[in-house]
Amino acid sequence: MLELHNLTRRYGDVLAADDVTFEVPAGRMVGFVGGNGAGKTTTMRMVMGVLAPTSGEVHWDGTPATRAVRARFGYMPEERGLYPKQPVLGQLVYLAQLHGMQAQPARRRAVELLDRFGLADRVDDKVEELSLGNQQRAQIIAAVLGDPVALILDEPFSGLDPTAVDQMSELLREHTSQGVPVLFSSHQLDLVDRLCDSIVVLHQGRVVAEGTSEALRADAPLRYRLTTTGDTGWVRGVAGVTVIDLEGPTVLVEPQDERVAQRLLTDAVARGGVREFSRIRPTLSEIYREVAA
């Protein structure tokens, strides 16, 4: 399990990361969300030990993460790059060796992964000769090649086509199913929603929301949309109900609680036909917009 304890990084007067605390349990996939400049990359670099925190600690299995432990984390930095003028396979093997792998197994595994991502016939091509999407695939392979105990991936999905997104998701799932904790940042909220067991929302360096997407939704205010056959202006008069938006037969309301919501429905039925009465489940983007506002 990977734990971040009060990670803080100060640049002059700016707090790029402010007391960031959360955990990535073994075998779980945690999505790291936040706007540009929210501090995701800074936090991930501190997790990797690439950047020294001003204060705070990163723990692995309950003890502060040492360099040896971090050397076994798979990492994909924000800006992509491998050696542009070196053949793909060669440098993947080199990077795996730096992580302590032997050359032969590293080569076998790299070829296997390249094959899986459809790059089998490009192994001897220079990286700069690959398309951006394929460079990205090679980068992902570099991150998972060294038999990592944890994966820290900064925007792993950006620039990937839908096929590659699926391949990538599957690869990540394989790792979580083996107990590897995965932390990845992304702006593609629907993707995060679909893939992640839990989500951490960062805003201006601070964690503003954290939890499973279910829990985050549960925290969101209770909202219903009611559409009746007639005008819904009467809803304004119902006690315990706040009207968010009203447009002719349709009204968006925030009832105090579930009981008030049910009473509202009974009232509506009593006043005439009800076309729709539905609970509004906020999308992750809506939750995100709310907490990051």
Partner: peptide, 23 residues
């Protein structure tokens, strides 16, 4: 746990500079 233990499995690179130099 199927997850490899970080400290146990890591053979550790004794002289990483050699690898860098040879590259």
């Amino acid at each position: 746990q199927a997850r490899p233990a970080a400290d146990a499995a890591a053979p550790g690179l004794r002289h990483p500079w050699k690898l860098v130099a040879s590259r």
